[in-house]
Design a protein around this nucleic acid. Structure first.
Length: 341
DNA sequence: CGTGAGAA
DNA sequence: TTCTCACGG
């Protein structure tokens, strides 16, 4: 998932306070996927309401967003639009992998192997229209900006960061760098503990800042070359990349070759130049509004508690925190406008 | 993932 | 107070 260039990318750990007062454009699909795959019971079953509808993502979006707002970080969630035609193949592959994982999940469940079951359940995570609409509805009720990307959310988030509408894009993937985001924040969570895949070990995970300019300087290339490098190694649009070429080799190749895609185009089924062009000039829009509003308390209680069986105590508690965060955020904005305080 | 009750 | 861990829906 995402482009496979992580090991080449220099990043620095930051404190949440470094993001205080800043806006970030969060890749909503990325967040959604995280919530749906990790917020599960021990046998891998996601959280569900009494009608069997999945609610893991609602829990995730609700509490994380409140935490970010409390930390003085203003999130805007950017949702995907239509994927480009040449992503269809990758999406199909993912669908097949999910179906396989789903079968293994049920098999493990029957054998009573909980750890195995959960592992496969997580891999079987799927995002559908209903889950996306739920998340959008909740965020809108919370007064959080929802941005609809015409195509890839990462591209839109990168565009917003490049225009300085936001400080950075936020995602676990590096794609927004290819789309030209000057800054990328990874691990944007409050409580930073993450389970190591497979093992029963937890590690501290801190937010990371990746600065495109520093990445390019460190690698000694420009953004166009970074895109070519990514294409050689493999992106969502040409999974697997070119056989036998990993990140290190790819870096050498793009540095010494004027048009590195030319050589590999004939052994590739997909149009590598079309992918490069897409990273350079993806569909984006200016049709969005970044306004953080008062939450619709009644609407949230109705949606989360009445419709989806969330605990009223917990939701009310969350709402109090959110309201306070919104009002101190407003206060801060006024102070910066009028120079008081 | 994030909360919060109970252990340490 | 800090940490662990089961539960949330």
């Amino acid at each position: 998932m995402g482009v496979q260039i992580g090991e080449l990318i220099p990043r620095k750990e930051i404190e949440l306070e470094n993001l205080y007062g800043r806006r970030v454009a969060i890749d909503a699909f990325n967040a959604m996927y995280q919530f749906l795959s990790t917020i599960r019971q021990r046998d891998g079953t996601p959280l569900m309401d009494s009608k069997g509808r999945i609610t893991s993502h609602l829990s995730g979006f609700f509490y994380r967003t409140i935490n970010l707002m409390e930390a003085g970080i203003k999130p805007a969630y950017v949702f995907d639009g239509e994927p480009p035609e040449f992503k269809k193949k990758e999406l199909e592959k993912r669908r097949e992998a999910r179906e396989e994982a789903e079968e293994k999940w049920y098999e493990a469940l029957e054998k009573g192997e909980l750890e195995e079951a959960k592992k496969y359940a997580m891999r079987a995570t799927k995002v559908n229209e209903q889950l996306i609409n739920d998340a959008k509805k909740l965020l809108q009720l919370m007064g959080i900006p929802v941005v609809q990307a015409p195509s890839e959310g990462e591209a839109q988030a990168a565009y917003m960061a490049a225009k300085k509408a936001v400080y950075a894009s936020a995602s676990q993937d590096y794609d927004s760098l290819l789309f030209g985001a000057p800054k990328l924040v990874r691990n944007l969570t409050i409580t930073g503990r993450r389970k190591l895949p497979g093992k029963n070990v937890y590690v501290e995970v801190k937010p990371e800042l990746v600065v495109l300019e520093e990445v390019l300087k460190e690698l000694g290339i420009n953004r166009e070359k970074l895109i070519e490098l990514a294409i050689l190694v493999g992106t969502d649009y040409n999974p697997g990349g070119i056989k036998g070429i990993g990140p290190k080799k790819a870096l050498t190749i793009v540095k010494r070759t004027k048009d590195p895609l030319a050589k590999y185009q004939k052994e590739s089924e997909v149009d590598l130049y079309a992918i490069k062009e897409f990273f350079l000039n993806p569909p984006v829009t200016d049709d969005y509004e970044l306004k953080w509003r008062e939450p619709d308390e009644e609407g949230i209680l109705k949606f989360l508690c009445d419709e989806h069986d969330f605990s009223e105590d917990r939701v009310k508690n969350g709402l109090e925190r959110l309201k306070k965060a919104v009002s101190t955020g407003k206060q801060r904005t006024l102070e910066s406008w009028f120079g008081v305080g």
